[in-house]
Design a protein around this nucleic acid. Structure first.
Lengths: 153, 153
DNA sequence: GAAAGCTTTGCATACTTATACATCGCTCTT
DNA sequence: AAGAGCGATGTATAAGTATGCAAAGCTTTC
């Protein structure tokens, strides 16, 4: 019964906009599914629907294949960890700092640095094995390169 | 004040998940925006945010404008449009300008800027969520950052 | 076949979001 | 300057959604 209902929900959503769970309940009842709002709340969670200005919508790029499970990051790695894992060397160039990393390490290193939100860092750009760190001026770049070198040990 | 806050909301959302308006309220307060849940409800409506299993998220690749048709856009979007859709903030760093965008927004933003052909812009580099704009000197970078901030309103 | 274990559901209610209404501060007009 | 008009916001509350708990129905196990 449940799987049938889940399909019916998808069908209803593609045919007309639905802006509340109660509206969905009424539309489903017309199709022979008579359940309460509570059940629909659970169904919606299971279908991973999004609610936007135009009501509920199906998840964007539906992952087919395995039933779901995008594993959880309970704690994204720290910049220090990333530098420790991937960092090779850091060099200052006027107001920039160039960090060389192991191949493929640039993106995660840059992402973790962004997450730290250092005030001396205006932004980062990452290629495959190089991260470019932009600082407001050369002095700040000096501070940053020093700190990173410390992490490199 | 309001436009500033709307940008802050986009920024908060790109940095960490937000699952309720009250959580958003607390995070904004730390940044100096002290408003009530009611105001955020209105802001969220205005930004056309979607709420899904992982909390609020920015509108997909929304072309706002004409309501329904799946019309193809024959004219490439203007830089102003792109900044309006994806831009979070712009910061000057000596002769460069760093523009932070929503995730995935950097490439289209940079492409549209290249298309504009501003004389103060020597070139651009784009990552996932960061665009680096290179200007001939700091003065020109200042002009560029000012113009972009105006677009961010 | 009875008990244990699991899934699905409804009920009641806590939690979250939207909105009617009032207020405040601006800008524009007379 | 007074008043109209407008947008932004807070307050209070209505509307909408999620969830703890318990009951009911199935399956499995012995």
């Amino acid at each position: 019964m449940k799987d049938l209902r889940l399909n019916a929900i998808r069908e209803v959503l593609t045919s007309s906009p639905v802006t509340s769970q109660d509206e969905l309940r009424r539309k489903l009842r017309r199709r022979g599914f008579d359940v309460t709002q509570a059940t629909l709340s659970r169904d919606i969670h299971e279908l991973q629907l999004m609610k936007g200005p135009d009501g509920y919508s199906l998840p964007n790029g539906s992952r087919h294949g395995h039933g779901g499970a995008v594993a959880e990051d309970d704690a994204p790695p720290s910049f220090a960890d990333m530098i420790d894992s991937f960092g090779l060397r850091a060099t200052q160039a006027t107001n920039q700092v160039v960090v060389r990393t192991a191949m493929g390490g640039a993106q995660p290193v840059a992402a973790s640095l962004d997450r730290e939100g250092w005030p001396e860092v205006v932004g980062t750009l990452a290629g495959d094995d190089t991260v470019l760190i932009i600082c407001p001026d050369a002095r700040r770049a000096g501070e940053v390169v020093t700190r990173i070198r410390t992490m490199l040990k």
